[in-house]
Amino acid sequence: LKIAEILIEAGLPKGLFNVIQGDRATGPLLVNHPDVAKVSLTGSVPTGKKVAGAVAAELKHVTMELGGKSPLIVFDDADLESAIGGAMLGNFYSTGQVCSNGTRVFVQRKIKEPFLARLKERTEAIVIGDPLDEATQLGPMVSAAQRDKVFSYIGKGKAEGARLVTGGGIPNNVSGEGTYIQPTVFADVTDGMTIAREEIFGPVMCVLDFDDEVEVIARANATEFGLSAGVFTADLTRAHRVADRLEAGTLWINTYNLCPVEIPFGGSKQSGFGRENSVAALNHYTELKTVYVGMGPVEAPY
């Protein structure tokens, strides 16, 4: 609403940019309206399937950026501090409410314990509080319902045998209103655990260990999602080789969650289709028109 207010104040023509609020009935009305030629959705996989079905009936253009359970792979030759920083950016940014987050952090077994020890220190030093305070590094969840959902996943992680390294509760040093939750790290997570398979959409990091490159690629790809992935290693040849084999639409090497507007962003598999950012995004909002101009008399064979 504030963006719309600013654009109107700047002199944007009325009707060029519209913000419509509503409830569950509003979305279908927009999607099915004959004046809407293109639909772009950022949301969950179930919602994406409903929208895809609706637009298919009208043969409308559609792009979707849906959920993710992205792998972030840390090899034993990676810079430890940088890799931990990338894992934190890939899990705690926006209180974990980012679909591209690398919530499955695969750490090569040789450096697993040093990684976890330093990760615990840095995570417990995060400043939690009011997002309007410039000192704050982690704000509240978007709602009490979402916080409760995240807590339910934390409970499942404990029940299924994951080791709680840090977090898992409500911070006791935050004043004021807000649905706050501690940044949480689980270790000894296995591929079959609920917290390793389902999108949590909160500040919960799952650390899994691995032995070799072939193994970790297979495990990283063993998911219905394919939005993002990350690789941390000092060997750039290996980094590109692994990135080439990972089934994801957006990949980072030795960094994570950086999305400058000039590079395409989007996923594959159940994470959706189409791209945001760059000229690739503009192509989804245009139609290719072909015009052939004859410059001489038409010679028909009849």
Rank of each mutant, 00 (worst) to 15 (best):
F232D: 02
V189A: 01
A196R: 01
G226E: 04
V174D: 07
M141A: 06
A162T: 03
V165Q: 08
S143V: 09
R245S: 04
D211A: 11
A145W: 13
L208D: 02
D212K: 08
V204D: 00
E199S: 11
A145R: 14
G157W: 00
L138I: 10
E198L: 13
I217P: 00
G226D: 04
R241H: 14
A229M: 08
D244E: 14
L227V: 15
E134G: 13
M193K: 03
F151S: 09
V150N: 00
N173V: 05
C206F: 04
G155C: 13
G167L: 04
Q137Y: 13
T179Y: 15
D130P: 03
R245F: 02
P183L: 08
V216M: 05
P140N: 05
A222Q: 14
I217W: 00
T166K: 04
I217V: 08
T166V: 08
S228V: 11
G176A: 07
R238Q: 10
M205G: 03
R241I: 09
T237A: 15
H240C: 09
I154H: 01
I200N: 02
V165D: 06
L138Q: 06
E224R: 10
F186M: 07
G168T: 02
N221M: 08
A248E: 09
D130M: 04
A162R: 00
M141L: 14
K156M: 15
R197Q: 12
Q182G: 10
G129A: 03
